[in-house]
Structure formats: structure tokens, C-alpha cells
Design a protein around this nucleic acid. Structure first.
Length: 408
DNA sequence: ATTCCACAGGAAACAGTGGTCC
DNA sequence: GGACCACTGTTTCCTGTGGAAT
């Protein structure tokens, strides 16, 4: 029996033949040649931007869609083609592509634009430094550069909703209005990509009117579409017969049930393949998919928990301890823990903020309950197993007296 | 019909940090 | 080295909420 196992392992090592043929295909960054099921949307974006090639001004464009609906991939694809055409026609076009979640403050966005447009290779007086400048000075320097070089700019901001949440309205306003300050040879056009359909409501009305001249919605993928996408990727990513059709169906069903998120489906497949590779098999099974799902969940939870601040950790422990899970009770427990550890407690206002953050991360769910005479509160339910919490917090020596007292 | 509880959550202000410029 | 700038995490102050109790 052992001989068989050893033979399988060594043989596959020698032939360099395992399960995954091309890991790259299973990552988020991979943009497939064939963009499945987004022909209409691709055409729409291309239509809007094609005005550049005809010496006109493209309008601003807002793109909505849940994560993993292919928004970013489609935009990147259109831009790539646009670049080629613009080059052929000798049009000076620049398309800075910025992710507002990575460049998560308004100023960082300006800095990033300056970097991508090579403004910081200009002489010192014209650069946009990492810090030290006022917002308006940085904006002016970018606009001056565009004027001087007489270029056309299509600014793409991915995850634009996270910018609006951080009072980034101003730079959006400045850029949507910038065309009034520069001549017709140059212009700035804005493409905003957002995960949230409701984010528009939070925009300043002035920005809203000019930004949402054109809107495009990417609907979630259906289970059938997810299946086809997965089949397509499997051909590139895996060796023949490594992924049975039942496994693909399960993967598509899991991802489809949640949000129609293609990224999630592909992620699931990748983790399952890694698990399968570690066990001695040449084929991914449905069990591998299920373990992969568990692993993804617990890995993200562990990551979030162990990197949290002390007070967030204390709050989570308080949620574990509190019996009915109301905010008032949880805050009382939290205060006890703070005095036990001789820490100054945060205010209740801040606590509700942190609770909101944890809710967004999916570690807890909250539910507002009106108890009439007995006020209004949130019922909080924990979504991580106590053993996972203990595991994630066990290295925090300061917390050990509290972690130890929690029973499984 | 009115009161009142126990918060939710928005807005603004603040302190501390880390940076540039002259 | 002082003036100025942006950012983050927080506090303070405040208004709003929905249904049980009166």
C-alpha cells in the first residue's frame, strides 16, 4: 500500500504533473482573453470612450456591480484596446487606473495620479509630493501638467465608493469640473467603478449630476454562467481530468448562491486544488471544495482577529461573554474587562462604530430591536466559533487572563 | 395620545503623528 | 525651527427612532 502511495508521489514529481498546470489563471489579477457574457457592457464602455478617437470629449461614466462581476476586467480590456488605437492615431492619451481602496485617502489618490502621469519626473516645483501640499495645490499641479503637455486623460477609479465614504467628494468635483479650466485639446474624463449601488446617494449633488452622465450595471453571474466561466478557466489552469464536472457544478452553486461572484468561485477552486495537491490524489473532489470553503472562511477570520486592535479584541470577547447580546450589556462587560486589564475604555459611540465595522467584515451580524419602553438596541450575533477566537488571540499575552476564562 | 427608554448614528472637533517648505 | 498640511482614531454633542407603558 505504502509503495503505491510513494510511487504516485514520486511519479508525479518526476513528470512534474500534478493538478495545477497554470496557477496564474486562478488569481484575481488574471484577465482572460475571452470575457464571457459581458459583450453588451464592453460595447457600451467602448462606445462612450470612442469619442476620444473622434476628437470629442467622452462623458463621465459610472459602473456598478457586485464584486466578482467582471467590471474591472472589462474596463481594463477596453482601455488596452483604446490605447492601441490612440497610438495608431497619434493621440496623446493617458489612463491612470487607481484603486481607491488601496489609495484610501483623497490625497493619496492625487499623489497616485501624479505618479502614473509621470508628473513627479518633472522639476521639483511641479511635483506632487507624498505629503506636505494642500489638496488644492496638488490638484492645480495635476491640471497644469495636463494643460502643459496637452494630453487627454481618462481617470479610472476602481472601488470609488470607498473614496466617497472618506469625504473624497471634493476631488471628484474638481476633476469633473476640470474641463472648464482647460482647453478643448485636453480633457479629463472619469470612469468610476463601484461595488455598491447605493453609493450615489451619498454623493454631493453637484458631483452626482456631472459624474452620473452615463451609468452601467453589471448584473451578478448566474450559476450557469459561473459554470461556463469555470470550465473555461479549468481548461487553462488544470491538467486533463483533474476536475470532474460535479466539482465545477458544486463550486458554481456555492458562489452563485451567495452573490454570483466569479472571483469567489475561482478562489474556491484554487484553494481546493491546493488541498487536493497536498493529499495524494490527481483529482479534485467535492470534499476538497467543502474543505476549501471552510479554510477560506477560517483563514480570513483568523487574519482579521489576530490583526485587530486591543479594544476590538476586547469587544469580541465581550460579545462572547454577554448573554443576550445587546449593546448595553456588551459595553458593560467590555468596561469590566478594561478595568481588569487597567485600560482606559473607549466611549460607547466608538464601540457602535467598531460593531459596524465587524458587521461589515462578516464576523458578526447585527439586528436592531425596538423594545418599546425598554429602549432600542442592537442584537449582536457572533459568526466565529469560540475555538477560532481562542486560537487567534492566544498569542496576545495581555489578553490571556480573559481568553483563559472563556469556556468552549 | 403622549411619554419615555436606550440606544443608533451623523457631524464636528480634537490630539497626535508624520510629512514638506522656506 | 516654525508654519502649514493631511490622515487616523477618537471624543463630544446632538438628533432621531419605534413601540411598551401610562
Amino acid at each position: 500500500m505504502e509503495d503505491d502511495i510513494l510511487n504516485t508521489i514520486f511519479d508525479s514529481a518526476i513528470k512534474n504533473k500534478n493538478i495545477i498546470k497554470n496557477r496564474q489563471v486562478l488569481t484575481i489579477d488574471y484577465v482572460p482573453d475571452k470575457l464571457l457574457f459581458r459583450t453588451k457592457e464592453t460595447a457600451s464602455i467602448a462606445q462612450s470612450l470612442s469619442v476620444i478617437l473622434k476628437k470629442g470629449r467622452p462623458s463621465n461614466l459610472l459602473i456598478f456591480g457586485k464584486p466578482g462581476t467582471g467590471k474591472t476586467a472589462v474596463v481594463k480590456n477596453v482601455i488596452e484596446h483604446l490605447y492601441k488605437k490612440a497610438n495608431e492615431l497619434d493621440i496623446k492619451l493617458r489612463v491612470p487606473f487607481i484603486n481607491a481602496k488601496n489609495s484610501n485617502t483623497p490625497y493619496k489618490i492625487l499623489y497616485e495620479i501624479a505618479e502614473l502621469l509621470d508628473i513627479n519626473k518633472e522639476e521639483r516645483k511641479m511635483q506632487v509630493y507624498f505629503t506636505g501640499l494642500s489638496m488644492s495645490e496638488a490638484t492645480d499641479r495635476i491640471l497644469d501638467f495636463i494643460k502643459r503637455k496637452s494630453i487627454k486623460v481618462v481617470l479610472v477609479i476602481d472601488e470609488i465608493d470607498s473614496l466617497v465614504n472618506r469625504k473624497g467628494d471634493d476631488i471628484l468635483y474638481n476633476f469633473t469640473r476640470a474641463n472648464e479650466r482647460i482647453s478643448s485639446d485636453q480633457f479629463i474624463s472619469l470612469i468610476g467603478i463601484s461595488n455598491s449601488l447605493t453609493f450615489k446617494d451619498k454623493l454631493d449633488p453637484r458631483v452626482k449630476s456631472s459624474l452620473s452622465e452615463e451609468e452601467l450595471v453589471f448584473n451578478p453571474y448566474t450559476v450557469e454562467q459561473l459554470k461556463e466561466i469555470l470550465v473555461d478557466r479549468c481548461k487553462l489552469a488544470f491538467y486533463d481530468n483533474a476536475v470532474p464536472i460535479g466539482v465545477i457544478n458544486l463550486c458554481a452553486a456555492i458562489a452563485g448562491k451567495e452573490t454570483g461572484d466569479a472571483r469567489k468561485a475561482i478562489d474556491l477552486l484554487r484553494v481546493a486544488a491546493e488541498i487536493a495537491e497536498r493529499s495524494i490524489t490527481m483529482e479534485i473532489t467535492e470534499d476538497h471544495i467543502r474543505s476549501a470553503q471552510q479554510k477560506i472562511d477560517s483563514d480570513t477570520n483568523f487574519e482579521i482577529l489576530s490583526n485587530s486592535t486591543l479594544h476590538t479584541k476586547l469587544l469580541i470577547l465581550s460579545i462572547v461573554k454577554a448573554k443576550n447580546g445587546s449593546t448595553g450589556e456588551i459595553y458593560a462587560v467590555y468596561q469590566q474587562y478594561c478595568s481588569k486589564l487597567e485600560q482606559e475604555p473607549l466611549t460607547q459611540r466608538r464601540m457602535t462604530q467598531i460593531i459596524g465595522e465587524l458587521d461589515q467584515l462578516g464576523l458578526i451580524t447585527t439586528n436592531i430591536v425596538n423594545q418599546g419602553r425598554y429602549g432600542r438596541t442592537q442584537r449582536i450575533k457572533l459568526h466565529i466559533h469560540i475555538s477560532s477566537i481562542k486560537e487567534a488571540l492566544k498569542n496576545d499575552s495581555l489578553l490571556s487572563p480573559i481568553v483563559d476564562e472563556i469556556n468552549n
